[in-house]
Nucleic acid binder design. Sequence first.
DNA 1: ACAGGCTCCTGCAGGC
DNA 2: TGCCTGCAGGAGCCTG
Length: 293
Amino acid sequence: MPELPEVETVARGVDKRIRGDRIVQAWFASRPQTFKNAPALQAKGLTGCTILGVHRTGKHIVFELGGETRKPGNDRVKRDRRKASPAHESDAQWIVHLGMTGRLLVTGAETPVAAHTHARLDLASGRELRFVDPRRFGRLEFRNLREGSQAFQAPGAEPLTIEAGAFAELFRGRRTPIKAALLNQSLLAGVGNIYADESLFRAGLRPQRQAGRLSAAELERLRLGLREILEQAIRLGGSSVSDYVDADGERGFFQLEHCVYQRTGEPCRRCQKAIRRVELAGRGTHYCPVCQR
DNA sequence: ACAGGCTCCTGCAGGC
DNA sequence: TGCCTGCAGGAGCCTG
């Protein structure tokens, strides 16, 4: 299931492959829940656009697009994906959320179309960008920034760069369990079930603890633990970047050794006590009863 | 404003 | 072996 590190890896892989390419035709299935605005509108908007760059914001993949008249290699192309300035220079954006099972594939035109393919973009290079999503929790949205749409912004803060004070402020006064708060995308954008559990283990905190009652020191352990685990996962994902958007691509993430996630009953890597599982915020939640207090 | 529960959807694991 | 049930989860929506 794609969370911040997986989405980052996909965005980098897609960017590397199709930056500068042009969309000559777009085909969308008619599955209404997959599209935040009408598939016909998305197909029309995307056709003729040049892909200036692809980057990640929270769990969303954002395609920065230039209008039909713009040439590839134009000097207005955004070169640094990390400096996502609010003053967007692109004419339009295509925003992809992978949900649970969404995949973006760059394929040859002759590659057989997989089941559950909901969108196909024909590129000037002869390749195709395909969106495949069996469970259909993914979402696609087109925004024309020249016709009044706002540039996409994740609702929550970026966990890789948020500073100590701002991080603590997110949780102040919240009575909800810290695990639920971590999953709340309007607070932090990009944390899902795996990295919520793993970061709480790193910080030595019980997932049930009330978010607003954590001390400054505990919150700082959590902020740093979360950042470390995300950065580590991005590095591991990075080892398979070149394959990830291909059919067999997810190999890189198997290298990530989970400490608690889906290890119910197995010995804690730190103290050997059996990992416990509870349900919190409707999600399976895993922790070590000794190491997490 | 906040918190918690329900819903969507399909593949897969587990049980008999 | 094969069928059936239930579980997994991101986020939007509804209710309290």
